[in-house]
């Protein structure tokens, strides 16, 4: 068994009378790319926010490479990167300055940041724009920049919330390639998405989530085989069953 980089147990999140996440348990091993699939309102973003420490779970635990997020918060956060659905771009800073700033928050030296970031920026065709203000970039450029900034400190685990939304096909393909290489280097990624095609092509394992619960789990091929149906139909059936009274 590969090294377990992320483990969550019985994560639950309630808001007054509403339960957004019922019981989320999963493990993420080194080299794995896991997709978290679900319709709108399934609890994917809430789950990711709990996993990266932006939201306190009502109950349950999150452990990064043996370190509890609740008890060893700073050390655990060193190991993770998070790409939000809306790029977290700082106003007034150029793309290059943004990458340096974020890398600096993780204690990295400027020359190391440069060494890690430049190849990625070139790959994403951002190198010509890096001295322009990042708030002048298109959404797709900002999203790619945000990804570079979160990978540059070489986190063990990357959490990404719908990272390819708004990207053109070429950029989405570049991003997927970077994800694959990231995992091949021994890291792990958990991506939330509702693009079934992406999940099928990219992910080693998928978790199908609806109304705060995981309703199916397994590799795309296994799920399809067991269901005797396409992933799309399986997804629709599972999510509509949950939606029905």
């Amino acid at each position: 068994m590969s090294r377990i980089l992320l483990q969550s147990r019985n994560l639950r999140r309630t808001f007054d009378t509403m339960t957004a996440v019922e019981d989320f348990s999963m493990t993420l091993e080194a080299g794995q790319l896991v997709g978290l699939l679900g319709p709108n309102g399934a609890g994917k973003t809430t789950t990711l926010r709990m996993l990266c420490g932006l939201m306190e779970p009502s109950s349950g635990s999150v452990v990064f490479d043996g370190l509890s997020l609740a008890e060893n918060t700073v050390e655990a956060k060193r190991m993770l990167g998070y790409v939000a659905d809306q790029p977290m771009i700082l106003p007034l800073l150029t793309g290059w300055e943004y990458v340096q700033f974020v890398g600096g928050l993780y204690g990295m030296a400027p020359d190391v940041i440069e060494h890690n970031a430049m190849p990625l920026l070139e790959r994403f065709n951002l190198s010509k724009a890096i001295h322009r203000r990042a708030d002048s970039y298109s959404h797709g450029m900002q999203q790619k920049l945000a990804l570079v900034a979160q990978i540059v400190h070489e986190p063990l685990v990357l959490l990404a919330d719908e990272p390819t939304v708004g990207l053109d096909p070429a950029s989405a393909a570049q991003m997927e390639e970077v994800f694959r290489e990231f995992c091949q280097a021994g890291h792990a990624i958990l991506i939330s998405t509702h693009l079934l095609s992406m999940a099928q092509e990219l992910c080693d394992k998928v978790l199908i989530m609806t109304k705060g619960n995981i309703v199916a789990e397994g590799s795309p091929a296994t799920l399809v085989q067991e269901a005797g149906d396409s992933l799309q139909n399986l997804f629709l059936r599972l999510t509509q069953e949950e939606a029905s009274p």
Binding site: L92, L93, E97, G104, L105, A109, R132, D135, S136
Partner: peptide, 25 residues
Amino acid sequence: TDSKEYHSGRFPRGLTRLLLWREFV
């Protein structure tokens, strides 16, 4: 939007210097 280019000098290391630098920018 602003399409001007800005070239920063050396980047600081350490959180305090980083925050000072950002304040200045």
